[in-house]
């Protein structure tokens, strides 16, 4: 028996080892290495990077662009998270066979809502770029009858970030709708029949029955949208390059800029460690939320 256990232990480790090696090499190792690297400088002309201690972090605290990136990222997250979750739920309710029974053309709507998920962000960005073009772009054309229009959406610091947020929401709502749809389809129809017999209004049914049943999904979606709000930068790379005047620079974009345009790996590593700290907080919050949910049961 002991021999069997040992054999199983060896087999277990052998089976996980290849995948584990790759995971460690590209997730755990870089997480640690980035913290160490952040203590060193740039290392120009093939020389070894000089040790700076906390120099990069001191520079970071004094760097107005870093603070702006943080502020932009907070705004980005604060808008993208609630709006894309709300839209995802509304879309799922509209195209679900039971909750959206009274809506005509559900099959078309379902495809329309979901399409952004199969389009690359960069393709989406190209099309939106035209929509936002001042003067003859679609948005300005729609606004011109109202005396508005000819507004440089991406070129002005007031509207560039909201434009990036709109593109992000457009994509996120589409993707996460599918999770709500799956959850709605798993809800037994008898619940609805019982509620209807009792004469409960649709709003009440949503609030008292559907919403609580969707909580695990909402939790899952919430955590993922939060993570996405740290890393969705494809449209920023293509549409605004972080500008104008850093108005659309969020943290990961700034890391990309420092790391791959200024080639300062040390400073980019220090910035990455701030991003990792943010993700660690998300992980802790998720852990807290999950353990609270167990008490409810």
């Amino acid at each position: 028996m002991i021999r069997g256990e040992r054999k199983e232990a060896i087999a277990g480790w052998m089976l996980i080892l290849p995948a584990l090696l790759l995971l460690v090499a590209f997730t755990h190792y870089p997480t640690v290495a980035v913290l160490i690297r952040s203590l060193f400088g740039q290392g120009l002309h093939g020389k070894a990077p000089p040790f700076l201690g906390l120099g990069n972090y001191r520079a970071m605290v004094a760097d107005p662009v870093f603070w702006q990136a943080l502020r932009n990222n907070a705004l980005y997250a604060a808008a993208v998270i609630p709006l894309s979750m709300a839209l995802a739920i509304i879309m799922a309710l509209a195209v679900d066979a039971a909750t959206g029974a009274r809506i005509a053309g559900r099959v078309f709507l379902r495809v329309a809502y979901f399409t952004p998920t199969v389009l690359p962000m960069i393709a989406i960005a190209n099309i939106w770029l035209f929509f936002f073009t001042p003067g003859y772009g679609l948005i300005d054309r729609l606004l011109s009858p109202f005396g508005l229009g000819n507004w440089n959406w991406l070129g002005s610091t007031a509207t560039a970030l909201p434009a990036m947020i709109a593109v992000a929401i457009w994509r996120e709502a589409s993707f996460y709708m599918i999770f709500y749809l799956a959850a709605l389809q798993a809800i037994p129809p008898t619940l609805r029949e019982a509620a209807m017999l009792e004469g409960s209004s649709r709003l009440n049914f949503f609030r008292r029955v559907l919403w609580p049943l969707l909580t695990p999904t909402s939790l899952f979606v919430f955590v993922n949208v939060v993570i996405d709000s740290f890393r969705l930068i494809d449209q920023i790379v293509v549409m605004t390059h972080g500008g104008p005047d850093n108005a659309t620079t969020i943290l990961l974009y700034y890391i990309y800029e420092v790391g791959f345009q200024y080639w300062d790996a040390g400073y980019a590593s220090a910035l990455t460690s701030v991003l990792l700290a943010g993700l660690a907080i998300v992980a802790l919050v998720q852990f807290g939320l999950l353990s609270r949910r167990v008490h409810y049961r």
């Binding site: 584990l20 590209f26 997480t31 993570i227 990309y256």
Partner: peptide, 24 residues
């Protein structure tokens, strides 16, 4: 324990670690 370590990647995706992964 190892499984918990594996799940870390769901949080910290390779996109976030571009600087160090580029070095690797």
């Amino acid at each position: 324990l190892v499984f918990a370590l594996v799940l870390v990647q769901l949080m910290v995706s390779p996109d976030v670690l571009i600087v160090q992964n580029y070095q690797t």
